[in-house]
Design a protein around this nucleic acid. Sequence first.
DNA 1: GTTTGGCAGAATGTATACATTGATCGGAGG
DNA 2: CCTCCGATCAATGTATACATTCTGCCAAAC
Lengths: 245, 245
Amino acid sequence: MSAADRQTQSNRALRALRDRIFDGTITGGERLFEVALSETLGLSRTPLREAMARLEQEGLVERAESGGYVVRSFSFADVVDAIELRGVLEGTAARLAAERGASAAKLNEIKVILADLDEVVPADPARLRFERYVDLNAAFHDRLAALSGSTVIRRELDRATGLPFASPSAFLEAQERMPAFRRSLGAAQAQHRAIVEAIERRQSARAEALAREHAQLARLNLEYILTEDRSLMAGVPGLALIKIA
Amino acid sequence: MSAADRQTQSNRALRALRDRIFDGTITGGERLFEVALSETLGLSRTPLREAMARLEQEGLVERAESGGYVVRSFSFADVVDAIELRGVLEGTAARLAAERGASAAKLNEIKVILADLDEVVPADPARLRFERYVDLNAAFHDRLAALSGSTVIRRELDRATGLPFASPSAFLEAQERMPAFRRSLGAAQAQHRAIVEAIERRQSARAEALAREHAQLARLNLEYILTEDRSLMAGVPGLALIKIA
DNA sequence: GTTTGGCAGAATGTATACATTGATCGGAGG
DNA sequence: CCTCCGATCAATGTATACATTCTGCCAAAC
């Protein structure tokens, strides 16, 4: 059992706090009072502080000037920048994979995911297959990070996608309920294929540009949600953190 | 007084641990035993754990599978990748500054630094002026990150340059003692100027490419040190963390 | 009316005792 | 002789009491 999954008090505190932040029970700018929270959650302040330190690493809270932690709040510009950042990092992962060469084994692995995605994408957006799409999409982005062969880049990408709205899966649930859903998904899959092809052919600049552009799909989805149908915001994890100016 | 500077036990622990890691007293792969360390440092386990959590954020230590913390060790490839990452992020900061437009005030600020650097660069590399160069160089890179206008990018850049060998100032001390020192410094300053000019002219692709290339100077210095004169390694902060394969 | 001093309370910072988990070593059983 | 079980010890995890610092308020002085 991995250390992060063990049933310790600090893990319970971590999950509880994350949940409360995501679902809006604790809102941006709010301070996390240790005594009050420890009573609410039924544990002592020690594991609570541990959990808050980890939330700081995830970027959900930050240390206040006078001590203690405050829930971060994000603007829409921050979300756009976080998506941009993911694009830049995934682009770098793709470029390095192309420049340095990816092993045949790893390339095959990601191609299998591509083939699986092909099977799912043209299908009806029924719930079951959709969840499979989400899993496969996450797997694709995970393998892409690994293809870089750089633990530094991989770590950084993991961190950057820790903010829920910056994750490659962030807008999928909302996307499912969007009119242009299937077309958009097809375009995304075409980009997936192109990225892998570019890496295989050692076309590093192309691989980087494609991966960057791929992330922009998330920004387009965000803008669609904002301008056309804000009710979809509920389907995007962590968008409750956004402070509407 | 900023929260990070207050004379608390955990700040003392943080500094003490950082020092011991940087100077090689605690070496890569070594485990940090709480009881032993708390006795050595003369404080209790609670602020020590706090300090270790913050060191994890800085990337100097990581959580072990079975609990506790272990000092990370880095390969030369990791250092190269960390430099690459800084280049990518500074490139992104420069590109965004160009695309979105930087305020005249901020542009003026960084131009003042450029002018100050111009005064220092052609001078003799005597100790006093050299320290001034280090400060100005750090200030330049700091302002460049700010020019992006993105707190997301700024944060990420701060994080990425937290690893001492990835900092823009990492190789300056070693550089001072290198034969090609002054020539290299002149080239760096020319790049500084070009980056700002590109941003001002809204040449985003040029700004990005230049900032990336600028970071590669650090990689060249690293390779020089490795192949030509390893005694210079002592002058690069944090290079003690590198595990020589 | 404004400012300043200090007091009260509530919050975080710290130490420490206790609980629990994980690893190592030795002995008994196969 | 090897294996497996259990005991023991040492490490981290947790609770809690105490120390310190911060904040907000009130009153007194100017």
